[in-house]
Amino acid sequence: MTANPNLLKGNLDLILLSILEGSEMYGLEIVKEAQARTDGFFDFKEGSLYPALHRLTEQKLLIAEFKYSPRGGAPVRYYEITDKGKTVLIEKRAEFQHFNKNVEALWGKS
């Protein structure tokens, strides 16, 4: 089972910030990390991530820098979460949990 695309899209910022919370990564690495951490539930088309990564960078929630990957090849663009990004992540995480909690509360009463 893979994630509903609409849910994925609606929570993309939260997902990306969560993945990047631990360490800096480049695009391909982010996709793999998402798949690995969720047993394939989050299966992004890599191309769909870059606009979001650039948007978050423009919003100063991420910083980006070209660096050489340990795997060799040309420099790849690494993304790292900023302090502002961490703050936003905390907020988004709380929002998400609050929402989930309330949805579950609805189920409990049905």
């Binding site: 480049y26 391909l28 890599e46 870059y50 070209f66 990957s69 090849g73 040309a74 790849v76």
Partner: peptide
């Protein structure tokens, strides 16, 4: 540059 680097890496 970013896309090419990731594509070639993959």
């Amino acid at each position: 540059q970013e896309l090419e680097a990731n594509i070639r890496l993959r």
